[in-house]
Design a binder for these strands. Structure first.
Length: 849
RNA sequence: GCGGACGUGGCGAAAUCGGUAGACGCAGCAGACUUAAAAUCUGCCGGCCUAGUGUCAUGCGGGUUCAAGUCCCGCCGUCCGCACCA
């Protein structure tokens, strides 16, 4: 068979993808005795096209999955679709298509794109969250959570868009207006479904400690998000002794520094007082109008309204504090009320200075102990208590404990923990989501749909032509018989937040029986996910929800594991230069796509007019900046292996990867270079063994394996480059031919198509398996991993002066003697005896003259 | 405001335990092959100078050490997360 002199990537890609399919190469069964490896990348939202970020994510996971297969693991590497969500419904409204059809078309297109990458995926396990066989089981789990007391329904304020007649997520409110309709968003109180994630706050926080293969950054972000604060909760009594309200503080030590009490504009007491006070009503309205966006926090004006009532200081009932309604106290944190200690809290100080309230020092700032606190900067550092009666002289922690103990003894307060984490509101007034399986009956109340009636399937014939929830106004769908009394009842028309769908999909990949969500025995085999890979943008919500869901299922006895993802990796983004042209004063610059640009040595020009164009910063690929590169076009031009290789080269995987035309060209050239090298296995010449090359080869086998295992793909790539260089330079020998053959296996996880093609071209006797997909990772010979000679640096006073090559493992005295005998060292010492000689065996000698 | 990460050639980077800084790649330069181009191959590729196994150099300034990109302290810059969280 004559061998092509160039690697025909497109034909090879298609040929081997079909071959893997036909052989079911990556279909997994848990029946064999090999150790398992569950490799998972975050499943995509089917937006329509894959982007380079997907390519990078899935290339990394695929290298790991293929490598694990080669090293004797039973690998589960599945793919699916996070298929519910707003874009489908928006498309329905804009283009008149059905969300289901739109989504399924997108899935088909993206599946085809992903397949072109040659991913080692078990497609038999593919799932889409928008199909009833998935969301029906999710409904079953939701009912289980309900039975376990982890689902509640409560009134809560939501962002309501009065034009689109829907609830908006916070991210969908821009400058107080709905992002689609532009209508002023209203705060509306609605009955919403919640999952009680706060029941697991402590567990979720503590569990972070066990996740030592997670990035510190992600653990820290989750820790901050959960936000545990310990302090004192106590009750103020109104002056005269009537019950007042509760406050929470993390600084009970500063209680004697109080100068006012403050409640949130949304506090029930404020609302009650407002009934008799038009001024207060107006003030509260003003606060609500202002909101709490980031820009407003920057300017951050503190606003207050003196209610005229006052409360008794808990440690001295004769001391009365005025009660203010202030805009910076939030109703949904703590109790919605505080005591103000301006000397030791910046916000309280800003407020007190504005409204002329007294400021008392209670923590000594070094020698400064005066009760009258001067200046505009609150003191929040350490110090002894002063001006604080029985607390005087104590440290801060000691004083906190003393006040808490006293409050508990006297019965007006108690030590407590407050969390930043809120219960997870999962209600969405939307069509394209999992229907919440409940029924409202006037006679019997709120009832779960009997499990036998699941799935509650979305009606196909929904109307998207007018705003609002299509489920709610569907003519028949919501009308059902009450499962209890049989009378007329209506279905819940809210659907679940799509984050619910992604909170358990990793279980369904492992086990997808038709009659239940999963089989616990199979889950026991596969879970936890050994390596989870995805973007940092999911550091909090998705990863926290999935952790919560897993713990909830464990709590209910359905699974054994507490944490779903043993190891997490967050990959960097794919970035690209931006190309723009200034449009003059008052006009936004015009952006151009990379395909419209001709890149020159020192700049770039626009192909259409040949005139120069501004080359901007390298930033994340985004449609608005037009700096996107379409994976399909690149695949057409260079084939899957070059794209995969480039995605893994150069940049460390956790860092951003700057895409460049030159970079993909370089990757493609390397594919071709390897192809030529792989064809050189017959070229043995008259040489026998090449010990030096054998060492390089076996060091590369071990080194690449270690790098891939640690997800250091850029380092593995560098080692493969270096080995290829060595092989090219080596004279013909049996070792060289062997190295060429082995190199096929080393690149197989990254360039599987090239590897298969080269493998197939080998004489059958030189192959251990028919396909590389089934081949084992080569064994590194430990004897060849160590050199027998080492180059030792000779320093004088820490500066490199000479090097020498010695046998490895020589003892210190021999190395020292050899160094001191070097002509250059003798010359530099000029007869003087060195003061000190430090010898690091096999590394260096440092002579202190 | 609070918390975190990062800062090494023209560029992406490597240096895993404190031990020869810049592996590997991209771009560039010179040469070979070619009628020419592409491809391929060879060599060079941090700064400076007196051109040496010279000297300086890992954001800046200190410190510890025989030895610092790596450890410690203080700055500066970039990026990210959270944010009137009591």
């Amino acid at each position: 068979m004559t061998r092509e002199t160039r690697f025909g990537a497109l034909a090879a890609d298609a040929r081997w993808q079909a071959a893997w399919d036909a052989a079911n190469s990556f279909v997994t069964t848990e029946t064999d005795g090999r150790p398992k490896a569950y490799i998972l990348e975050m499943f995509p939202y089917p937006s329509g096209r894959i982007h380079m970020g997907h390519v990078r994510n899935y290339a990394m996971g695929d290298v790991l999955a293929r490598f694990k297969r080669m090293t004797g693991h039973d690998v589960l590497h599945p793919m699916g679709w996070d298929a519910f969500g707003m874009p489908a419904e928006n498309a329905a409204m804009e283009k008149g298509v059905h969300p289901g059809g739109w989504t399924r078309d997108n899935i088909a297109a993206m599946r085809a794109q992903l397949k072109r990458l040659g991913l080692a995926i078990d497609w038999s396990r593919e799932l889409a969250t928008c199909e009833p066989d998935y969301y029906g089981q999710e409904q079953a789990l939701f009912l289980d959570l309900f039975a376990a007391g982890l689902v509640t329904r409560k009134e809560s304020y939501v962002n309501w868009d009065p034009v689109d007649m829907t609830v908006l997520a916070n991210e969908q409110v821009i400058d107080g207006r709905g992002w689609r309709s532009g209508a002023l968003v209203e705060k509306k109180k609605l009955s919403q479904w919640f999952l009680k994630i706060t029941d697991f706050a402590e567990e979720l926080l503590e569990g972070l400690g066990s996740l030592d293969s997670w990035p510190d950054k992600v653990r820290l972000m989750q820790e901050n998000w959960i936000g545990k604060s310990q302090g004192l909760e106590f009750s103020f009594r109104l002056a005269g002794g009537a019950p007042g309200f509760d406050v929470f503080t993390t600084r009970p030590d500063t209680l004697f520094g109080a100068s006012f009490a403050a409640i949130s504009p949304d506090h029930p007491l404020a609302e009650r007082l407002a009934k008799d006070s038009p001024e207060l009503t107006a003030f509260i309205a003003e606060c609500r109008r202002q909101g709490t966006s980031a820009e407003q926090l920057e300017t951050g004006e503190k606003l207050g309204f003196d209610t005229g009532i006052s409360v008794e200081h808990p440690l001295d009932p004769s001391w009365h504090l005025p009660v203010w309604v202030v805009n910076y106290v939030l109703m949904d944190y703590g109790t919605g009320a505080i005591f103000g200690c301006p000397a030791h809290d910046q916000r309280d100080l800003d407020f007190s200075r504005k409204y002329g309230l007294p400021v008392y020092r209670v923590i000594a700032d070094g020698d400064e102990t005066a009760q009258h606190f001067a200046g505009d900067e609150a003191y929040v550092g350490p110090g002894k208590l002063v001006n604080s009666h029985f607390l005087d002289g104590m440290g801060i922690d000691e004083a906190k404990a003393a006040v808490i103990a006293r409050s508990e003894h006297e019965g007006w307060g108690k030590g407590t923990t407050v969390w930043r984490l809120r219960d997870w509101g999962v209600s969405r007034q939307r069509y394209w989501g999992t229907p919440i399986p409940f029924i409202h009956c006037d006679a019997c109340g709120l009832l779960p749909v009997p499990k036998g009636q699941l799935p509650v399937v979305l009606p196909e014939d929904a109307d998207f032509s007018v705003p609002g929830n299509p489920l709610d106004r569907h003519p028949t769908w919501k009308h059902v018989a009450c499962p209890s009394c049989g009378g007329e009842a209506v279905r819940e028309t809210d659907t679940l937040d799509t984050f619910v769908d992604s909170s358990w999909y990793f279980l369904r990949f492992a086990s997808a029986p038709s009659d239940k969500p999963f089989d616990p025995d199979v889950i026991r085999h596969w879970l936890p996910v050994d390596q989870y890979i995805g973007g940092i943008e999911h550091a909090i919500l998705h990863l926290l929800y999935a952790r919560f869901w897993t713990r909830a299922l464990k709590h209910m006895g359905m699974i054994d594991i507490a944490e779903p993802f043993a190891s997490l990796f967050t990959q960097g983004m794919v970035t690209h230069e931006t190309y723009s042209r200034d449009q003059g004063e008052g006009h936004a610059p015009l952006f151009f796509t990379p395909t419209e640009i001709v890149r020159t040595a020192d700049g770039a020009t626009l192909e259409a007019d040949g005139a120069p164009i501004d080359v901007g910063r390298v930033i994340k690929m985004s449609k608005s900046k037009k700096n996107v590169v379409d994976p399909d076009a690149i695949l057409d031009q260079y084939g899957a292996d070059a794209v995969r290789w480039f995605m893994l080269s150069d940049s460390p995987p956790e860092r951003d990867l700057p895409w460049s035309e030159a970079g993909i060209e370089g990757a493609w050239r390397f594919v071709q270079r390897l192809w030529r090298l792989f064809g050189d296995t017959e070229n043995v010449g008259d040489g026998g063994e090449d010990k030096g090359l054998a060492r390089r080869l076996h060091q590369a086998i071990a080194g690449v394996a270690a790098d891939v295992e640690a997800l250091g793909f850029n380092k593995a790539v560098a080692k493969i480059h270096a080995l290829a260089n060595e092989i090219e330079k080596a004279k013909p020998s049996a070792t060289r031919a062997e190295a060429c053959r082995t190199l096929i296996l080393l690149v197989a996880p990254m360039m599987p198509h090239l590897a298969e093609e080269a493998w197939a071209a080998l004489p059958a006797a030189q192959r251990t398996t028919t396909m590389v997909a089934d081949a084992a990772w080569p064994a590194a010979d430990p004897a060849l991993l160590v050199e027998d000679e080492v180059t030792i640096a000779i320093q004088m006073a820490g500066k490199l002066r000479d090097t020498m090559t010695l046998a490895k493992g020589l003892d210190k005295d021999a190395v020292e003697a050899a160094a001191l005998a070097r002509p250059r060292i003798v010359e530099l010492l000029a007869g003087a005896a060195p003061k000190k000689v430090i010898v690091v065996p096999d590394r260096l000698v440092n002579i202190v003259p």
